[in-house]
Write a protein that binds this DNA or RNA. Structure first.
Lengths: 249, 249
DNA sequence: CCTTATTGTATCAATTTGTTACAATAATAA
DNA sequence: TTATTATTGTAACAAATTGATACAATAAGG
């Protein structure tokens, strides 16, 4: 969804957009030792949904996802990757979009392009929670972070999309060095370990974790962090370079 | 492409199909210690292409890929997975399909659905070379195996699709236990090691490889194989169960 | 029955990972 | 000032995994 929903709505044939194809983006953040995802609440409908959008007919699909990500977070240069195409016929359900349009006082014709079957390309993004500026679109009441373990009821198969995104993140966390994208600029080793433990949903051994992370040679010690606690102050670390995937679609 | 290409061709608006979306399948096989992919040669055009097809408007996308795989190999119950969506605008090139239709004596109107921009969902399949029956479709001269290192010039971005499929296979070979899908029913440890070495493009240590494979507990010794060579006969192994991914799209 | 090439596996070394321990050190209180 | 406390950084060792080498077992063929 972008800010010009009335344009999509009145554009009954969907001119200028790829028909039947959308992107949905699972935007992960990390805060208060919890994994969060960004969700939109649709006006009057009680429905929650992933940030998604349609693809301009002269736009790269990956670019469309990046545009969606940017319009909901005001962030650029973010870790963003495809993870799955949701293309089962059983997910075809024009109900939600119809309800949204009707709640706006618009009664779409039966052959309206937005009511046709859509295939969705799933993306996941890893963002710095503190830098994202959640921004609702024209048809949503809110754009907010929700903890993964207390999500509201979601539109269509968006819960499954989130589940699969998390699975992918868990699998790719070790191989690719992508966890850092969820951290703030500076962080302690404890912060980082907490992130890993939350994503992987298991305890890690402190000494081994620290040894491994330092061994990667991608962390730089910046300063010490005096928290006020009655104990040795931890170092603050900085990630030396962003890990963004190459786009070779 | 299916056997009824004239139906696609005369169906100018693409009724019954999802517009602008296709599947392309990189079908891997292993023979003579070489990785092979199945390619189609299009009539009169000198173009080679991956087996691909369109999606019925009431069909799961994954099912469409499975249908394509089955129609080109006569195989069912095959390891088949999505690996990437190729959706860059720059890949839009109606030339090849136009050439194919014209070579058939059909001059398509400019707004023919097959000449519009297509997004392609990439799949890769791992098949037993000896069981596949390469089957051309109506518009191709041949359907044949080609060694990965001596591929003919390919249509559009199909070479890139193959490259990315191979990358994915290399990355997933260790984690998931999928290499066995490329073997014949019975194989020696040497055969299996040769497969791994070919896919990963590096030498492996014989003793360690054997120890690891046996340690997985998924191989069963069937018999010995007397090759006629002047040396100890290797065991023949069988894979205990097919490794097919769950379909949760 | 001796030679030859290859297989299956044992053995030990090297590396990586798991575990425990302990010194270093900020705050606080005696 | 000096103990006390909690947490961090890292050393030290154990356990597990992987790399490398060696060697016995064994099908052919002479």
């Amino acid at each position: 969804m972008n800010k010009e929903f009335h344009q999509l709505e009145n554009n009954i044939a969907g001119e200028g957009f790829l028909p039947g194809l959308a992107v949905d983006t699972v935007i992960f953040g990390f805060h208060d030792n919890q994994l969060k995802v960004l969700l939109l609440a649709y006006k009057n409908t009680g429905l929650y949904a992933l940030p998604g959008g349609f693809i301009h007919d002269n736009e790269d699909v990956n670019e469309a996802a990046r545009r969606v990500l940017q319009s909901r977070t005001a962030l650029t240069n973010i870790y963003l990757e495809q993870f799955y195409v949701f293309g089962n016929y059983s997910r075809y359900d024009p109900g939600p979009l119809k309800a949204i349009m009707q709640a706006r006082g618009y009664n779409p014709p039966a052959d309206h392009w937005l009511l046709k079957r859509f295939i969705s390309v799933g993306y996941y993004a890893l963002v710095d929670f503190t830098r994202a500026i959640p921004t609702p679109d024209e048809i949503s009441d809110s754009c907010d972070w929700y903890s993964l373990n207390e999500l509201p009821a979601l539109m269509q198969d968006h819960q499954q999309i989130i589940n699969k995104a998390l699975e992918t993140l868990q699998n790719e966390l070790d191989q690719k060095l992508i966890g850092f994208n969820l951290m703030t600029e500076e962080f302690t080793m404890g912060d980082l370990q907490s992130l890993y433990e939350t994503i992987l949903n298991k305890k890690l051994i402190r000494a081994a974790f620290q040894r491994k992370m330092l061994g990667l040679g991608i962390l730089e010690r910046v300063a010490k962090k005096w928290t006020g606690g009655a104990h040795k102050a931890p170092y603050l670390y900085k990630f030396v370079s962003n890990r963004l995937p190459a786009d070779n679609s």
